[in-house]
Amino acid sequence: MSLTRDDVKKVARLSRLRMDDQQLDELAPKLNGILGFIEQLSEVDTDNVEPLSNVARSTLPLRDDVINDGECRDAVLANAPESEEGFFAVPKVVE
């Protein structure tokens, strides 16, 4: 499998990373190098092997349904690049 510049462009778009053509051209071979490296895995026989997504050796903890957080708008907005009237502000979204 080899990524074309168009493929890289699509991935950059999905990742919300702006890249010009030159960057795409430079990145494609690097990504292909890494993909070639990870494709070694196809050699491994994984029939009848269950995927392992987490090695935490415990069960999922559950918390009581109590309100013990929030009500901290100043902390929530403290680092916002732009906030107005208690909201985060962003360029207008047109749907």
């Binding site: 999922l60 903890p61 559950l62 918390r63 009581d64 349904d65 109590v66 309100i67 013990n68 957080d69 929030g70 009500e71 901290c72 708008r73 902390a75 929530v76 907005l77 009237e85 208690g86 909201f87 985060f88």
Partner: peptide
Amino acid sequence: GASIEFGAAPNTHVSLVDAAMPGMLPVLNQ
């Protein structure tokens, strides 16, 4: 653990987890 009550002032029923601050983690409500 933030409240889900409707109609509150903006961004008040928000914890640092809900605001996705770096390093914040989810814990499931039983």
